[in-house]
């Protein structure tokens, strides 16, 4: 199977560097704006929950963080798979740039989940709970990816080795997704579902959706910034990098 042509063009590092540099500020500022609007709507405008009171409002941080933790893992794994199959160096650079961002969002999802769990379940953590355990596993997978990447000296070896780990770890994603349905879990069921009507009133839902969109844009902007730096570092011998650095673009 061959890659489509536009993807080939995008895969050239100077082209990617330029395009990403143009998109990135838009994503960053629109993402931050959406997060501000969503936080305002979620923390101040949305009505309190009849069961959980005001404590439920942490959902506006917890759900976007957890969602991104998984999406960024998928991005990292897809990047690694593309790199392994088609030997595309840029895909590896994006994977390597994604890992710390994903780790941060996984940490945020775990931390907000623990803070939410204490008042609702009476405990910060429950061992043996499938959802919590599988997200913790993902945290360690991100960590393992980064440590393995950092400990292998030669970059191409590190890319491939860490990439294999990322791809093997993909089995964890469906486990996280369906853990609440497969096993009896302390964790509440999904609030938003693509197929069913949401189990949440619109007043509470719209800030959540805005927060998710904002968090996605923000995380992609951060990832792109990191990926651009990664590309510069990896291509530091190339002429175009010298031109870019000289101009200061």
């Amino acid at each position: 199977m061959r890659l489509p042509n536009w993807l080939h063009k995008l895969a050239s590092p100077p082209h990617f560097y330029r395009i990403a540099g143009r998109i990135e500020p838009w994503m960053l500022w629109s993402g931050l704006a959406a997060i501000a609007v969503g936080a305002f709507g979620g923390l101040l405008l949305a009505p309190p929950d009849y069961q959980q009171g005001d404590a439920y409002r942490i959902i506006y941080f917890h759900v976007p963080a957890a969602y991104l933790a998984m999406q960024l893992y998928a991005l990292m794994a897809i990047g690694s798979a593309i790199g392994l199959v088609w030997r595309m160096k840029l895909a590896y650079a994006i994977s390597a740039a994604t890992a710390p961002v994903g780790l941060a969002f996984t940490g945020l999802a775990l931390a907000t989940g623990m803070l939410w769990g204490k008042p609702m379940w009476g405990a910060y953590w429950s061992w043996g709970d499938a959802r919590l355990t599988s997200v913790l596993v993902m945290f360690f997978l991100y960590l393992g990816y980064m440590l393995l990447h950092a400990s292998l000296e030669e970059r191409s070896t590190a890319d491939r080795a860490a990439g294999i780990l990322a791809v093997v770890g993909v089995v964890n994603l469906p486990i996280i997704k369906f853990s609440v349905e497969w096993w009896s879990s302390l964790h509440q069921g999904p609030t938003i579902s693509r197929l069913a009507a949401p189990a949440i009133t619109w007043d509470m839902l719209w800030p959540l959706l805005v927060m998710i969109v904002g968090a996605v844009l923000f995380s992609l902007a951060v990832t792109l910034t990191r990926a651009r730096a990664e590309v510069l570092l990896r291509e530091r011998g190339a002429r175009w990098v010298r031109d870019v650095v000289a101009v200061g673009a």
Partner: peptide
């Protein structure tokens, strides 16, 4: 050590 860290979550 890294081997242990990689195996454990899996």
């Amino acid at each position: 050590g890294l081997l242990a860290l990689l195996v454990l979550p899996l």
